[in-house]
Lab assay of single mutants.
Amino acid sequence: ATNIVSKVKWYNSTKNFGFIEQDNGGKDVFVHKSAVDAAGLHSLEEGQDVIFDLEEKQGKAYAVNLRIK
């Protein structure tokens, strides 16, 4: 899926990962520091509106092509 609009559930800049809620009630989506860095960001804030693409690797959903709404 591409261009999903949602909100950051939480992000831990010390552990370099977090999760984004899915508005459709699906499972929370993992977001890694590499996606945050690629977006030119230093961190994410809880409740922040984001747009991302969903990529599945080894049966897990990852946020990629992250951008701020």
Rank of each mutant, 00 (worst) to 15 (best):
K15G: 05
D28G: 07
D28L: 07
D23I: 15
I51D: 04
T2P: 07
R67S: 05
K9M: 03
W10S: 03
N16L: 07
G26L: 11
N65Q: 04
G59C: 07
A39I: 08
V64M: 07
I4Y: 07
K27H: 10
Y11K: 00
L54T: 05
V5L: 12
G18T: 03
A35Y: 06
K33C: 08
K15D: 04
S13M: 11
K69Q: 12
A35E: 10
H32N: 05
K57P: 03
V29R: 03
S34G: 08
Q58T: 08
G18S: 01
N16K: 14
V64H: 05
E46D: 10
A39T: 06
I4K: 09
L66D: 00
V31K: 01
G18D: 00
S6K: 04
K60H: 09
K60G: 07
V64I: 12
E46M: 14
G47S: 05
A38F: 08
K69A: 13
L54H: 03
G59E: 06
A1R: 14
I68F: 10
S13R: 13
W10F: 10
Y62V: 07
K33D: 02
E55A: 12
E21T: 14
G18W: 04
N65D: 02
F30Q: 01
G47I: 02
T2G: 07
A35C: 05
A1I: 13
L54V: 12
R67N: 04
K57V: 11
I20G: 01
R67D: 03
A38W: 07
L66V: 08
L41M: 09
F19C: 04
A63G: 05
G59Y: 05
I20P: 01
S13H: 12
E46T: 15
T14H: 13
F52L: 03
N3I: 06
G26H: 10
V29E: 00
G26V: 09
N3W: 06
V36M: 08
E56C: 14
Q22K: 12
K33T: 04
S34N: 11
K7Y: 06
G40N: 09
V50H: 01
V36T: 02
V31M: 04
A35N: 05
Y11G: 00
T14W: 12
Q22E: 07
L44K: 01
T2I: 13
A1S: 12
Q22W: 15
W10I: 02
L66K: 00
G26I: 09
Y62P: 03
G47R: 06
V50Q: 01
F52K: 00
I4Q: 08
Y11A: 00
D28K: 04
G25Q: 09
S13T: 12
G25Y: 09
K57C: 13
Q22A: 15
E56G: 07
G59W: 04
E46C: 13
K7G: 02
I51S: 06
N24G: 12
K15W: 12
D23L: 15
E45A: 12
S6C: 08
Y62I: 07
G59F: 05
G18C: 03
Q48W: 13
A61V: 14
N12E: 05
I51Y: 07
F52N: 00
Y11C: 03
S6A: 15
Q22R: 14
L41R: 05
D37R: 14
N12A: 07
F52S: 02
